[in-house]
Every structure is written in structure tokens, then in C-alpha cells.
Simulated scan of single mutants.
Amino acid sequence: MVIPDAGIDWDACIGLLLQAMQSLQQGLLHVLAALDATRDIDGQPAWPFALRLSGEVMLIDRSVARALLAALAYSAAALLLAALACAWKRARIPLLLAGGALLLFTPWPDAALFTAPAAPTSFHVSPTGFSASAIVRGERLYTQQCIACHGADGRGNTPLGLSLPVAPPNLSSGLLWRRSDGDIFWSLQHGKGGMPAFATRISVADSWALIDYMKANAAGVGIAATGAWPRPVALPDIALACRTPGAPGTPDTTRLSQWHGQRVRLVVAESGKAPPTEDPRLQSVLLDGAAASADSVGAIACANNQRDTLRAIAIITGTPEDKLPGTQLLADRDGWLRARNAGGEWSPDDMLCRSTTAVEGAGSGAGNAAGGMDQLIAAMDADPVRFAKGGFFTHRQR
């Protein structure tokens, strides 16, 4: 069935459809959990069905979404006719016949196009918050349990991996972004294809940490190969110690994840050089350096000196730790890493996570640091991340 565009914003319609599908499933799972109609797995309600709704095909082929929207419109019209039949006795029979005909001839697309196999943990959410400590813990586990088959870069081109009857999946491709974290968790715990189950060797908490590392490592491999993050990667959550100017004493402690809706800049301290000052357009954090003293004016007030933080940043950026000093990273209001600067003036060319259109239209260079940052922020705000994971959009990371 071909549906003309007719001036319809199909991207917006598909986005609303996917949001409704995901909300419907999550709502159903919450209701089942409240009624004790489903069991808990590792403290979260299990999805009790073999299939789940998925928008993955619709994100590739808009005609599937159009067909599904048309079928839903037919069904809604049939329900409306049934409601009218209840209220209008004189026309009840014709209205019911018309509604029945609509239901009978509704052009539903093949269910395989908008459903996908589900695991009991398909809707599980990682409890780690994609923290730096979880990423580094996951790195150790990956080295112990996974590197022999999957390799350091995750591509699986190792002697052991190539000798297996079923080749290991390429973890540096889009696999970890296409599948939900809950599906990956289930495969890790219970095995899939040629991969054995790790439930008896890796704890639940360590499994989530391993997933965090695999995503961080894939981002680092991607940026090392192409010079940009090929897929969105989140700013790792870290602990912060923040001093208030004019208020001496012990710094206040918080976490980066508490800065909802704020642009964030991470600055790796460089020995012998003064770090940049605070910027009113964003929140700044100094890594591997001391936070501003109480009487400092304009200096960065929040710091993190944990070793895991630098290691996690090195993994995500594909940069050796000894090359990090002087590096600055910029995250948008939704917590996605968007830009990197290795020293010098900011420019739109520093934005490394953007759409093709933004890449082509970004231009290059900037007259000064302030102007460059203004242009970068404008380009970043004009090109928000639309991240599809498990067949559904994820707009907000923190």
C-alpha cells in the first residue's frame, strides 16, 4: 500500500509512533510488575513475552511506518464507528457492518517488520550510570574474559576468534548501539551463537560494567580510525569536589549526573600550565588537577582526581593517557560527548559527533576562542543527537 507524502512530516510521525510503542511496552511491564504477573530478574521486572515491538526496520524503511500508521488509522476508524453504533440505534447495523469491514480489510504490515525477538531482560536498565569506574572495571574483565576471541579492538580478528565455527561479532560496529543494553546483558549472561554463557563466571554488576567498557572501547576505536565518534557516546559519570568562591572549608561533593540539562566541559590539567577559566556558557570540571581555592576568581571550581576518570576518557577518545593533558571535551545538555579540543582555540571543526548535514555545513576555523566556542555551541544546539537504540529513540542520556 503506497501512501503519498501530501506534505506530511513523516520523520515527526515516525518519532511519535516509536515513542508511543516504547511507552506502551514500558507501561505494560510496570502494570504487570505491580500485579505480580511477572517475575523479577536481578531486581528488575522481566519481560514475559517472546516478542517485543521494535522500530528498527521503520528507522530504515519509512514505508513500513507509513503502513503501520495507516493500519492504526483504519482500526481507530472502526472503533469510532462502533462507538457511534452504540449511541445511534437507527444506524447501528450499517455502522457495525462498516466498522467490521474496516477491521477485516485493514492492511496490516507483516508483524515481523515491527516486532523483534525479546529476552526477559530486554527492558532492563543498567544500574552503573555509565560511570568511569564501571568502564575501567569492565576493561579489566574484558582483558580477562573476552580479549582472546574479540581482540583489543573488538573486531574479533584474533587467531582464536577466527578458528571458531561461529565468528565473534564485531563489537566496534554498530551492534552495541542497535541492540538494547538489556538484550546484550542477556546474551552475555546466557550465551549466544558461539559465545558461552558467563553467568557463572561474571557477576551481574560486572556484566553491566563489561557492557559499559565495550561501548566506550567501540567509541575509542571509531574515533581513532575515522577522527570522529561514528555513533553517540555519553559523558561518563564521575564524582566531583566543588569549592564555592569565598567559602573556605571542605569542598562540596556531587556527581556529574546531577548536572541535568547543563553543557559540560572536561579539562585535563597540563603540568606547568594554568587551566582555562570558568565559562558562563557551561559547567567546567578540571581533571587530574586541584579545584580552585576559596579565594580564586574565575578559576574552575570543580575537580576530579580519580585515576579511573582519566583512564575512561582515554578509552572513549582512543588516546593514550600520557597524551591527554591539555585535552578538553564538551558535552551537550543531554549528556552526549560532542567535541574535543587538544589545545588552542575552539572552532566548529572540533565537533566530532554530528549529522552529515552538520558536517558539510559546519565551516572551519574561528576568529578567536570566544567566537569559536559560540559557533561550536550554536552548531551543537542546532544539531541535537537523535540516537536510536533497540529500535527506539533515546533523546536524553542524563
Rank of each mutant, 00 (worst) to 15 (best):
R62V: 11
G220F: 06
T319G: 05
T200N: 12
L18N: 03
A388S: 15
A199M: 12
F49A: 11
Q19P: 00
L84N: 08
T244D: 08
G194P: 00
L32T: 07
K215C: 02
L35D: 12
M58N: 02
G194I: 01
A301K: 04
W47Q: 03
M58L: 05
Y74F: 15
D61I: 10
L24M: 10
M380L: 12
H395R: 15
S122A: 14
L80Y: 05
L160S: 06
D237G: 08
T226W: 02
L188E: 04
N305D: 11
F123T: 06
T356Q: 12
R92K: 15
G390H: 06
I60E: 14
L17T: 07
A225K: 13
A101W: 13
P384Y: 02
A370K: 07
R140L: 06
P48T: 06
L210V: 09
G7R: 09
E139K: 13
F123M: 07
F185P: 02
S355Q: 02
Y142A: 08
G174S: 15
D9H: 03
L141V: 03
E56F: 05
G156M: 03
P168D: 10
G27T: 13
L53G: 11
E278L: 05
A111H: 05
A224F: 03
F185C: 07
F130T: 02
D350N: 15
P275I: 00
P168Q: 08
A71D: 05
P109T: 06
I377T: 05
P348M: 08
T158W: 05
P109L: 06
L164T: 05
P275E: 00
A224H: 07
R333K: 13
G182Q: 04
W259H: 12
I8R: 14
I184F: 07
C302W: 02
G191S: 07
M1R: 14
F123Y: 14
D40T: 10
G365N: 04
C302I: 05
G138I: 05
E360P: 01
A247G: 01
G391A: 09
S163W: 09
L160P: 01
T356N: 09
F387H: 15
